[in-house]
């Protein structure tokens, strides 16, 4: 590609990108398309925008899904033909995506339809139809983006519903107490806990973000090895080995951390094996014994925790 030293991608490159995108067919002019690319560049290469070489920008733009970007922009701009193409390509996919996400026909239809409305831009803002498709930047595939947006919508909706339910019911169930008790609330007499927590936090902080993501996905979210592997672009067996390595490594590092804080090896091992949450919950329930409503939800928590702890 020819080099150029302009602020946006060079004129030649811009023209090539424009031709590749097929935006002309949807009535998006070269200037409009260049402006869109400029905006995307500003968004994703903010720190380098001033100094980034044209090559860097051109590489970045060439890595975008230009054709799908053009379609999305044209749809957002209200081009009839683009919208027809979008509908024929994605309308049915939206329904199957929604079904995959919700696993329920009724909810799937609602989710797909509401997203479809958002994409079309029913929500008029200042009299202008604003389509969600305008926010698509072509970093990933349009189909993948639709799936992600739908998953976000689903989770938002679920969280909303969950929150309304919990607001209504929390008073009678005393749930708000659990949420309202942050860890500092029970600091008294927890020195070994604090040391253990500190050592664990330290050990976790030393891990790479990918390792922490893997741990959280596997142990907190209960994702399968296959799911994690696909998210990270690895093979399942690599994820399995990594988790093995992480678990042994963490144990070693936490033990080492505890010993630097003055615990003997035996004490450190013991501290590591004890489920601190049991201790803390015992403490909590002792502190809150006077109120029946408060102890109720905590009765449920240790039962679950004890189950997890017993694996060890």
């Amino acid at each position: 590609m020819p080099k150029s030293a302009q602020s946006g991608p060079g004129a030649d490159i811009a023209a090539a990108l424009y031709a590749r995108s097929g935006a002309a067919a949807y009535g998006v002019s070269a200037e409009q398309f260049a402006a869109i690319l400029d905006e995307i560049l500003r968004k994703y290469l903010p720190q380098t925008s001033a100094r980034a070489s044209a090559e860097q920008k051109a590489d970045f733009c060439a890595g975008l899904r230009l054709e799908e970007l053009a379609l999305a922009c044209a749809c957002a701009a209200g081009n009839e033909r683009a919208w027809q193409d979008f509908v024929s390509r994605y309308r049915q996919k939206l329904h199957s995506m929604a079904l995959h996400i919700t696993r329920d026909g009724a909810h799937a239809a609602e989710l797909a339809d509401s997203l479809f409305a958002d994409l079309y831009g029913v929500n008029a803002r200042d009299g202008v139809r604003s389509s969600k498709l305008a926010s698509y930047t072509g970093r990933g595939s349009l189909e993948g983006w639709l799936r992600t947006v739908m998953a976000q919508e689903f989770i938002n909706r679920y969280r909303k519903q969950k929150r309304t339910v919990s607001l209504e019911e929390q008073t009678e169930e005393g749930v708000q107490f659990v949420a309202a008790v942050p860890e500092p609330a029970c600091t008294s007499g927890r020195t070994s806990d604090q040391r253990l927590e500190a050592a664990t936090d330290e050990a976790l902080a030393e891990l790479s973000s990918e390792d922490r993501f893997t741990l959280a996905s596997y142990y907190l979210d209960g994702r399968t090895l296959a799911e994690i592997a696909r998210t990270l672009g690895l093979h399942e067996s690599s994820v399995s080995r990594r988790l093995d390595r992480l678990a042994t490594g963490l144990r070693k590092r936490i033990l080492a951390g505890l010993r630097t804080q003055g615990l003997s090896h035996a004490q450190a091992s013991e501290a590591l094996e004890t489920d601190v949450r049991d201790l803390r919950l015992n403490l909590r329930s002792r502190l809150t014994q006077d109120s029946g409503a408060k102890t109720f939800p905590e009765g449920k928590v240790p039962a679950q925790d004890a189950g997890e702890g017993s694996h060890d």
Binding site: L196, T200, L204, A216, Y219, G222, D244, L250, E273, G309
Partner: peptide, 25 residues
Amino acid sequence: EVPKIVPTIVPPIVYDRLRAASSPE
């Protein structure tokens, strides 16, 4: 499924701190 696949289980405190770090609150 967790215990079946990976024999090495992280210490309970690791769950605890992971959860604390990414708790919904």
